[in-house]
């Protein structure tokens, strides 16, 4: 590990000032991702600013009925919070399907949003080519091991996925990421927060180097209990998703008034299945309608030799999540 300066930020502004003055600074949340990456030399910041003492550790009701999750609230606390359990069970379920209790006890909301991919070639500097780790070095996964890689949104430069479970649920709940920086405050809808890799896979989000995430705001959910998070993985716990799916449905009688369908672990970001959503709105909830709609989305998938299985697996996962959310299964 490279030596680095360590400090603890007492105020948000203090943290921002360090980010501004020292470009090679990283914010330290729970450290469950960052410290691992530093150990492997993948992240080599000169400075770490610990933000765990900032007053961002609360979950509050918002006046319009939504909720604000502070950036340093631990994953465990979010999952167990009465407000979340009651109004956003989808989010609690997604969180509890991730990592292990020990990791969740440390991991923060902001850190979870910003966690990096688990692409094998990214995680091990012993592999020469990885555009995300060393821009311009090539992508080892394209013709290599890519069983866990993207079938949506990838590019010829990178097909890594965003591995988070939490963020898939956040996307289905139309979360808005609140950001603070030297130029003031920004609200970035989660659907716009992540960038697709294109030719610059090392730039992953809209967050600029001197900005800090302060909270994640959730509007009042129109779905309530009509929501489901389903995660498929190689073992029953403590494994990242092969595919996952968050679905929320608002029904009028049996007619679908509104729907969110978001795929996880299949794209560089939580992948909102807009085509499927559009096809479903106004339809009667039925197995056929759901199947047709998911097929529409799956037509745009670009699998590779080693991850073709994700297409049928995701389709079945999505159908099951939608049907469960719609109360059919």
């Amino acid at each position: 590990m490279r030596p680095f300066q360590f400090s603890q930020a007492g105020t948000i502004n203090a943290a921002i000032r360090v980010l501004q003055e020292h470009p090679s600074t990283r914010l330290l949340g729970g450290g469950t991702n960052l410290v691992d990456l530093m150990r492997e030399g993948i992240e080599q910041p000169d400075r770490l600013v610990d933000i765990q003492k900032l007053p961002l550790d609360k979950i509050d009701m918002l006046p319009e009925g939504g909720v604000r999750i502070g950036a340093t609230v631990r994953n465990t606390e979010i999952a167990n919070h009465p407000l979340i359990r009651k109004n956003y069970a989808l989010l609690a379920k997604a969180l509890l399907s991730g990592a292990s209790p020990q990791v969740r006890n440390m991991a923060t909301a902001g850190g979870n949003l910003m966690q990096r991919t688990r692409c094998y070639y990214f995680m091990d500097p012993g592999f020469h080519s990885c555009n995300k780790r060393v821009p311009g070095s090539g992508c080892s996964a394209l013709e290599g091991a890519h069983r866990i890689h993207a079938i949506f949104g990838g590019s010829e430069a990178c097909i890594a996925v965003h591995p988070s479970d939490m963020c898939v649920a956040l996307a289905a709940l139309d979360a808005v990421v609140q950001v603070e920086g030297p130029r003031g405050h920004r609200s970035i809808p989660i659907h716009d927060f992540y960038r697709l890799p294109g030719n610059t896979p090392h730039i992953e989000t809209e967050l600029v180097a001197d900005e800090i995430i302060t909270s994640i705001n959730l509007p009042k959910s129109p779905f309530g209990d009509r929501a489901e998070y389903l995660k498929v993985r190689d073992r029953r716990s403590f494994a990242f998703a092969l595919v996952s799916c968050a679905a929320g449905i608002a029904l009028e009688g049996s007619v679908i008034r509104d729907v969110r369908l978001v795929f996880g672990a299949v794209a560089p970001k939580p992948w909102r299945a807009l085509r499927a959503e559009r096809a479903l709105i106004g339809k009667r909830m039925s197995v056929d309608a759901v199947s047709d709609a998911v097929d529409l989305e799956m037509q745009t998938a670009v699998p590779r030799a080693g991850n073709k299985y994700k297409v049928p697996l995701l389709k079945r996962t999505a159908m099951r999540a939608l049907l469960a959310a719609g109360g059919v299964a």
Binding site: R118, Y120, D124, F127, E143, G144, A239
Partner: peptide
């Protein structure tokens, strides 16, 4: 990965042993 002669899952996060739940 035969191109590198190096295995891609060289940690316990990706080299899977059973968890209790399994």
């Amino acid at each position: 990965d035969p191109r590198y002669g190096r295995s891609v899952n060289m940690d316990l996060s990706e080299y899977h042993l059973p968890a209790h739940a399994d």
